[in-house]
Computed example of a mutant assay.
Amino acid sequence: MRLRFLGIIPNTPDTDSPTIWLDEETGDLLIQSYAATEAEVKACREVGSIPGHSTEVPDHEVIIRLPKVMRQYLPGPDSE
């Protein structure tokens, strides 16, 4: 795996550091951020996604909250 650092929340203290990396081999993003609260997960389940798709979060997945300021580090669809 070859990771490239994309960004960290600006002016972050040492103990609070949402961060984004890009896996240059797969194009996947690795995101360290805040875990969604139970209320946020419940709201996601209520909204759902597509008809017939489960709204449960599998054990191998998580819902995270990415602060708005971190969106500047997300690569666009045509970025490498």
Rank of each mutant, 00 (worst) to 15 (best):
M1V: 07
M1K: 07
M1F: 09
L3H: 03
F5L: 09
L6G: 03
I9P: 10
T12Q: 13
T12G: 14
T12I: 08
P13C: 11
P13L: 14
D14M: 10
T15R: 09
T15V: 11
D16Q: 08
D16A: 09
S17N: 05
S17E: 08
T19V: 05
T19D: 06
I20G: 03
L22E: 03
D23A: 02
D23Q: 01
E25P: 03
E25S: 09
E25D: 15
E25Q: 02
T26F: 02
G27V: 03
D28E: 12
L29R: 02
L30E: 13
I31L: 07
I31Q: 03
I31D: 07
Q32C: 15
T37D: 05
E38I: 11
E40P: 02
E40R: 03
V41A: 04
V41K: 12
V41D: 05
K42W: 09
C44R: 13
R45N: 09
S49Y: 14
S49R: 12
I50M: 14
I50Q: 14
P51L: 11
G52H: 04
E56L: 13
V57K: 04
P58Y: 00
D59M: 09
E61Q: 10
E61K: 14
E61L: 09
I63V: 15
I63F: 15
I64K: 00
R65K: 15
R65S: 15
L66C: 01
P67T: 01
K68H: 13
K68I: 13
V69T: 11
Y73D: 01
P75A: 00
P75S: 06
G76T: 02
P77R: 03
P77D: 05
S79T: 06
E80T: 08
